[in-house]
Every structure is written in structure tokens, then in C-alpha cells.
Design a protein around this nucleic acid. Sequence first.
DNA 1: CGTCTATTTGAATGTACTCAAAAGCGGTGG
DNA 2: CCACCGCTTTTGAGTACATTCAAATAGACG
Lengths: 200, 200
Amino acid sequence: MVITREKIDKRFVDLFESTFGFTREEFDHLLTYFEVLTLKKKEHYFRAGDVCRQQAYINKGCTRTYVLDNEGHERILFFAFEDWWIGDLESYYTQKPGVNFVQALEDCELLIIKRDLFQKLALENPKMQQWYTYKVQRAANAMWRRLSEVKTESPEERYLNMLNTQPQVIDRVPLQHIAAYLNIEPQSLSRLRKRISKKI
Amino acid sequence: MVITREKIDKRFVDLFESTFGFTREEFDHLLTYFEVLTLKKKEHYFRAGDVCRQQAYINKGCTRTYVLDNEGHERILFFAFEDWWIGDLESYYTQKPGVNFVQALEDCELLIIKRDLFQKLALENPKMQQWYTYKVQRAANAMWRRLSEVKTESPEERYLNMLNTQPQVIDRVPLQHIAAYLNIEPQSLSRLRKRISKKI
DNA sequence: CGTCTATTTGAATGTACTCAAAAGCGGTGG
DNA sequence: CCACCGCTTTTGAGTACATTCAAATAGACG
């Protein structure tokens, strides 16, 4: 499937053209290296044990990234929506098996670029390398903030913050997964919601 | 104070020379741009609200990086020892005020390089830029793993893992700070230790 | 040696968990 | 279009475990 400028999220175009100064020609050329990957709801994009060999941009849909604890419970690290990049960052860098799972929560359309292709392009165009550093830096910042949140806020506080800052999570993600994200049982989240609705 | 090759942690030299292919001359030249900063025990290297304008390598000593929760409790994100880099990564990148505190737990000797100086060097020598990407990538990986740990392991499991993988934490860090790292009260960690010692 | 802080121990409390079951909802096939 | 099935969410009751408050002991530092 051919990817055209019109079919993709405007933010994707802007990131390359406005933020990293790709010319229109450079960007259109870059686009030819991307492929479209569609996922059905509940399908996995990545599983622990896989080696991550590509970068993936969510053009449409949403996913959850989770790990398993010792009892086999799924613990969700984050949800990703349109204009996010997903995958296993460490596995991509080291080319060793990853530890995360990434699963579609809705039907998804991803734009992917293979690692070896990307590395070739990065040699030709230093803007690609800058863009990668930027992406890693952003991921590091996001993980850092997430860790701070988990350590400083109660599940209730984190839920209320989510209501304000990421309402799409509440709209698009089922309760059980939000509970796994907050590290509480679904029953507890149900009671928490009831408590909150009474206050309003 | 002049920094000589002999005075610094061997791992520092190896990272630049073996991993990033600096020649002896390149490395010795780079060294002239670093400064030594010493911290007394309990002194802060960085405070929330500061802008991070330099990178710092721990040549000797250890630190804790923490944030404050809504009640003003100090929540420790991680401890850092010899051969770690400390600071506020996001603030360094964005040059906006940071949210972390970094405090010396022992008398420390840090090797620091100013941000503007580093950026000038990175333009001259692409290996510097590679090294920065590597450092950010490592930080992202570390944060990701830390987040996974916090989400999948109980305080007791995390304590036992620490015994195996980072015994220096138990040796060098007082109980109250380990408790703040595990997100439990000092009393609970004291009881936890008692429980564990009975099992052995 | 004395003071201040860190750690340990005890008892009571509260909150989220577990187990269990009912109600609600969505999707599928007749 | 409706009925059924499976999965999700809600509700209830009892339990376990970390927390809180309080006090004693131990340890560090001048």
C-alpha cells in the first residue's frame, strides 16, 4: 500500500518538516520507506521474547504496553494513541529479546520503518539521527515522569489526573485495563469511580 | 584542579576510548574540558526548580535522586554510585526548571562538563553526539526497567532483588532512604528485614 | 559524655485485597 | 430481530497487611 501525505496524521508531517527541517522532497522521499501495518483489535504488535526490528507510529487506533509479573498478571506501563511511537525501545537498541508486550485495544493503522533501512537513511541524512535522539530523549522523559507519578500519587490521584490530562484513556480504554495501569484490582477501580461520582 | 587520567575511574576512560573509539589524544583533550566538583555528605547537587546546565559523572561517592509528593514526602527514584551520571535529564534537554532533587549520601567527587561546552565539542566531534545518544538511551532503558519493577514486584521482592543485584545499596544507604526507595515506611522496612533474617 | 537522629518494637486502625455472586453489556447465530 | 452466551463491571462480606501513633532503644557526632 502506498502512503501519501494526505492519508497520515498531520502531526507526523509537522514533526519532520517543521521540527527537523525536512524539505518537502526529503519528507516525500522518506515516506516511501515507510510501510502500513494494520492490527485488529486484541492483536499483538510485539511480545516479550521478540527482537524489535522496526519503529512504529500510530496513525490510527490505540494500544497498551504491558509486562507480566511473577504471578502472570498483566501490568500496564502506558497506553498509546494517535501520534505516539510504540515498540520495545531497549530491544530496538540492543537487538536482544524484549520484555514488553504491545497489544491493540482498537483496530490500528501503524506506519513502520525497518531498523536497517532507518540506519542506512541516518547515514545519508543527519536529520534522521537527530530525530532518533529526540525520540529517545522524549521516551526517557516520559518514563521518568511516569515513574515519578507512580511513586508520588495514589491510584485515586492518578485516576483524577488522567481525567484531566488524558480523557481519551477513560473514553477508549475498558475499566479492567485502566485498573491494571493504576496497579489496583478492577473491583477497586469500580468502587473508586462510584466514590468519585458521589462527590460531584 | 587539573584532572588527570590516573585520578579517574577506569570505567570512565574505557567508555570513551573502547566503546566510542576516542584516541588517547582525543580523550586527554576532552578531559581538559571537565571540572571537578566536590560535595559534602547531605549537600544537594540539584534541586527542583533549577535548570540543569551540565552533565555530572560520579567519580567517587553516592547520591539519591528524589521527588516530593503532595504531602512533602521524599520519594526516591534511584541511588547512583561510582560510574553513574546524575542530573535532571529532561531539564538538561529542555533547559526548563527540573522537578528532581539530587543529594549526596556520602562525600562525593563529581566530574562535570558544562552544556554549552559539550555542545560545541559535539559539533567538532560526532563521537560526542553518539555518546550523548547512548547515554540518553541507557537512561531511558533504566527508567523503563525501574518502572516495570515498581509495577510488578512487591516491596519485599524488590528488597531481595536489591540484595542480589545491588548489595552496595544495602551497605551504603541508611534504612530510611531504602524505605523511601521501596515506597514503604521505615517501620515497615525494619519489620521486613526482621522477617527476612528469620527465614535464613 | 550528652544530644540529636535513626531504628526498632508495640498496638490499633484503615484500606485494598480476596472470594463469591449478581447484574450489565456486546457480539453472534438462529 | 431477538435470544443466548461469554465477558465485563458492580456489589457484598471477610481478611490481611501496611500504616499511623506512640514510645523505647540504639547509634552517630560533636
